[in-house]
Amino acid sequence: MPLSSNHLLGLQGVSKEDLQLILDTAHTFREILDRPIKKVPTLQGKTIVNLFYESSTRTRISFELAEKRLSADAINFAVSGSSVSKGETFKDTIKNIEAMKIDMVIVRHSAAGAPVYLTKICDANIINAGDGTHEHPTQALLDMYSIRQKLGKLEGLKVCIVGDIAHSRVALSNIFGLQTMGAKVSVCGPSTMIPKNIKDLGVEVIYNIDEAIQDNDVLNVLRIQLERNAGEYFPSIREYAKYFGITNERLDKNGKDVLILHPGPINRGVELSSEVADGSNQIILYQVTNGVAIRMAVLYLLGTLN
């Protein structure tokens, strides 16, 4: 069964069948990652461009590894040193790259909607690797895959996304994907970082981290962007850590084996204390490994469509 779209722009509107297909496909690729020889010839002859208009380390490396393990030719394009710094428009850059005959574009961009725009001006398959504060679908897919592996299901689980929801692309993709799979999603954070109308998405809003820990099976803890938010969206990092940071003490007090995810990079001592970041509840590095499998699955499913 093929995917029902030529692109992966976000998880909003993606069907349960498609999500299931991606997660199941990732599971078969996950096994390849544990082999001594981690390479398969599936996408041999396909050219994939990693178009990164915003700096990223782990997402770009994860995609690049996934591409290489599927034997695709991977080209990296980052903003610095490209025509962008010479004033070329986004459209002209894309048209030029497309003219070199490529099959797929992985795009990371600071502007929401940039991947949608790409589909209008370019014939390649487009994968959104994070657009502004909109979506980051492969991150949510790897989160969902990791949860499913650890807890055996997604349906009926209670998942709370903690932190700066308003400026997060991970949050929105997780909300859409998890809801489609039948999980109940809530968010927890200071009200200045919760977007207006989030409740209209069927998401419960919690302002107390202890409640969030008690009531949920999974916490997906987001990175606080220290450089942007301190002082503007919450009074201080100290206050954030005190009222929203997850510590062993909080976990013990609320007495639960809650599963803790974090998309990284972690601010130790802010959203997670160091003991929690290295503790038994978290699956942070497991997520990173699964990220490669998820991206292989998406690349494979889109790359073999036509």
Partner: peptide, 9 residues
């Protein structure tokens, strides 16, 4: 709701 959906500032 639309700005929340679209992730636009």
């Amino acid at each position: 709701l639309n700005s929340t959906f679209l992730g636009l500032p």
